[in-house]
Write a protein that binds this DNA or RNA. Structure first.
Lengths: 218, 218
DNA sequence: GATAGAGTGTTTTGTGGCTAACAGACAGCG
DNA sequence: CGCTGTCTGTTAGCCACAAAACACTCTATC
C-alpha cells in the first residue's frame, strides 16, 4: 500500500487532492478516541500504537501498526467517531486522505482494493488469536507469545537474539497483553533470570530460541 | 452481498463456474478447524456459529454469522488451514465459490469489493469491542451486553421485549462471552428473578428496557 | 414407560492475577 | 547538584471466576 502510494504519489496527488504527507513526533496523536475523523491514514515509516481508554481508566492496546498498515475511519459518515487513539511511538511518517478519496482510489485499482481487504482480514485474525490467548493462557504465556511476535515484527538481529527497536515501558507491554503492570514486571524479571531475555530501561533483547522452548514446553 | 448474488445468480454462475448454492442442516459443519479450505462462503439464510477449540479443550465462539455475512478463506494459498470451525445453527442456506473466483468477482465489481471491505472492518471492530468487555467487565455485565447484542441481531419483537429465534444452550452462551457454564447459569437465574428476561430450555426472551437499565446503572 | 443423553441448577474449593501501596533507580531540568 | 517526574521492583490482601462434582429435569428413542 505504502509502496503503491510512494511510486505514484505525484500523479495521485493530482487525482485525489485530499492526499497529504505528514510527520508526527514521538507521542503525538494521529487522532484521538472520540475524535470525529473522516480520514484514512497509511503509515510510511515508524510505529503507531492504537489504544482504547475504558470508562474505568484502563488502557487497552489494540495493535501496533508499522509501515504499510492502514488505519482511520473506513465507515465514512456512519460511525464517524473513533473508538481508539492512534499515537506515534518514535517519529512517524504517514499519508492521509479523505475517506471518499480512498474509496474512489480503491474502486479504480482492484489489486490495491484486494490487498487492503486481505490486510484487514489478517488484522482481524490476529485479533482473534489475541482473544484466544487472553481467554485461555496465563499472563506468563501471553507475555512470551507477545514478545516473540514483537521480535518478529520489530526485532533486529543482535548478538543474543532479537533486539526490539521500539521503546516500550512495562505499562505499554501490560496494556498490549491485557495484564497489570506489576505482574508484567515480575514475570519479566523471572524470564531474565532464566536467561530468556534481557532488558534495560529502554531496550528489550529477546533470546528467541529460549523463549520458543518455553512456549512449546508448556 | 447475498442480494447481489441472488439477483444475478444465473449470469454469475456462467461467469464464475465455481459458484454453488447449498443447504446445511442443524449442527452440520460448513468447514472444520484445521481443514484445508479454499472457498469463500456467503450465507443466504440461517445462522452460522464460528468457534475455535483450544488445545486445552476450551471452546471459544468467535462470532455468529447471519444472512449476507461472508466467511471462509480469504488468504488463498498462503494460510489455507482454517483456524476455526463453522457450524450451522438450525438450517442454513449458503453460496460457495473458490477463493480465486471471489477475487475475480470483486475485481470486476468495485462497489461489491467496498462493501465486503467495510463488512470485514465492522467485524473487526466488533471483535475489538468484545476484547475490551472481556478485559474490563465482569461476567454479569458481559452477559447482559451480549444478550442485548443478540436481541438486536436475532431478536423478534414479542410481548415483553425480544424473543431470540436461535436455540442456544447455556454452554453456547458461555463460549460466546468467554465464561464458564456454571457462572452463566447462576447469572441467568439472577437476571430472571429480577425480571430482566425469561427463558426456557429452548427460548430466551429478553426484556430489553430492563437490561439496558442494568447496563447503564453499573 | 424404561433408559440414555443432553441440558440445567447449585455448591465447594482453590487460585491467578488485580488493586493498592510503597520504595528504589534513573533521567531530565532548572 | 538537588528536585521532580517517570519508570521499575516487590509485597500483602482480596475476590471473581474456573474446575470439579453431583443431583435434577427434560426429551428422545426404542
Amino acid at each position: 500500500m505504502d509502496i503503491f502510494l510512494e511510486n505514484n504519489i505525484d500523479q495521485l496527488k493530482r487525482d485525489y487532492p485530499s492526499i497529504h504527507e505528514g510527520v508526527m513526533t514521538n507521542k503525538a496523536f494521529l487522532y484521538r478516541q472520540g475524535d470525529l475523523c473522516g480520514n484514512i491514514i497509511c503509515i510510511k515509516s515508524g510505529i503507531v500504537k492504537l489504544s482504547h481508554l475504558t470508562a474505568q481508566g484502563n488502557e487497552i492496546a489494540t495493535a501496533l501498526l508499522k509501515q504499510g498498515d492502514i488505519t482511520g475511519n473506513l465507515d465514512g459518515l456512519i460511525h464517524p467517531l473513533m473508538e481508539e487513539s492512534a499515537q506515534a511511538i518514535g517519529s512517524v511518517g504517514f499519508y492521509r486522505m479523505t475517506h471518499d478519496d480512498f474509496k474512489r482510489l480503491l474502486s479504480r485499482h482492484a489489486e490495491l482494493a484486494w490487498h487492503v481487504l486481505t490486510a484487514t482480514q489478517a488484522r482481524k485474525q490476529q485479533l482473534e488469536r489475541k482473544l484466544r490467548t487472553i481467554l485461555t493462557q496465563p499472563v506468563e504465556m501471553r507475555l512470551a507469545t507477545m514478545l516473540l511476535e514483537l521480535a518478529g515484527t520489530f526485532g533486529i538481529r543482535c548478538s543474543h537474539g532479537y533486539a526490539l527497536e521500539i521503546h516500550l515501558t512495562q505499562q505499554d507491554v501490560a496494556d498490549l497483553i491485557g495484564a497489570s503492570r506489576p505482574v508484567v514486571s515480575t514475570v519479566l524479571n523471572d524470564f531474565r533470570s532464566r536467561g530468556m531475555l534481557d532488558y534495560t530501561r529502554d531496550q528489550i533483547c529477546i533470546h528467541d530460541a529460549a523463549l520458543l522452548d518455553f512456549c512449546s514446553a508448556k
